[in-house]
Design a protein around this nucleic acid. Structure first.
Length: 269
DNA sequence: CGCCTTTGACCAGCGC
DNA sequence: GCGCTGGTCAAAGGCG
């Protein structure tokens, strides 16, 4: 009698365990499928992201070509080109995501800047800060940084001119001073991981100029192979972190919108 | 001591 | 000419 009860109990337990295993397997399968579809979606997102980037690139080049065309047409006609017709290829804008409470107006782009003024402008209650490259007057680049009026989480940095030197010339001092100056609140590369630092940069639209990339010496010029390899790795890491960063995708969408209307779309941001 | 930021003053361009 | 506005200058003070 007891043996019978034991067998039935064992059978019931076995059946329950089997059901549990089946349930877990089903769940596992479900998660696996979900994971697969998510991976697929990420791939699609990456593709779309790349497409958007090349679209922006093409659009910026088109804009510049049009500027040049109208500029030279004016000259050809014998007239003086108006200010709007003069090529403005060396001006670019980037949007940088920061904390909304951050008042420092600091955009970390690897270069060392010296602030020379701050103003409250008519169209935006947030003050605009004026910076010039610390290598001035050797390097004539200037930038203006102002909080985006539509979305206060973003800083708008407007660059004017091209750097005639490498980032590395000033990066050491830049980061050293960043530790001590008013940049508190921003992670410094020495104290935090690079991806966090990098993901702060929403999008670089310096496509028409792309001066910084062009000006950098190639590996065969002056850099050791090791350095080159390191830089390449860092760039790849950067690209990977950007494509994984959802805020980057959002900012990219905003940048596409702004490239058409010249203003970021707050609804998208 | 050198380099930086802050900030009020100054200047130039533009519209009325 | 005047006032407004954006951009720049430069003296003062802070920081390591």
């Amino acid at each position: 009698m007891d043996a019978h009860v034991d067998t039935s109990t064992t059978t019931t337990t076995t059946t329950t365990t089997q059901k549990n295993i089946e349930g877990l397997l089903a769940k596992l399968e479900h998660v696996r499928k979900e994971n697969e579809s998510l991976r697929y979606m990420v791939e699609i997102m990456n593709d779309k992201c790349n497409n958007l980037q090349s679209q922006i690139r093409t659009e910026q080049q088109m804009k510049y070509t049009n500027y040049l065309a109208s500029y030279y047409e004016s000259i050809h006609k014998g007239g003086r080109p108006t200010l709007a017709e003069v090529p403005i290829s060396k001006t670019s804008k980037i949007y940088v995501k920061t904390h909304v409470d951050d008042k420092t107006l600091v955009v970390k782009d690897g270069y060392q800047w010296r602030k020379y003024g701050q103003k409250v402008t008519k169209d935006n209650p947030s003050p605009r800060a004026y910076f010039r490259c610390s290598m001035a007057p050797r390097c004539p680049v200037k930038k203006k940084v102002q909080r985006c009026m539509e979305d206060k989480r973003y800083l708008v940095a407007t660059y004017d001119g091209e750097h005639n030197h490498d980032v590395d010339c000033s990066i050491g001092r830049s980061f050293a001073s960043a530790k001590s100056s008013s940049m508190a609140g921003f992670p410094s590369p020495e104290t935090s991981n690079t991806s966090r630092f990098q993901s702060n940069i929403a999008l670089d639209l310096t496509l028409s100029g792309s001066s910084q990339e062009k000006k950098r010496p190639s590996s065969s010029d002056s850099m050791e192979d090791y350095d080159h390899h390191n830089k390449k790795m860092k760039i790849e890491e950067y690209v990977a972190s950007l494509t994984k960063d959802s805020s980057f995708t959002i900012a990219l969408a905003a940048a596409v919108a702004s490239s058409i209307t010249d203003l970021p779309k707050p609804t998208i941001l």
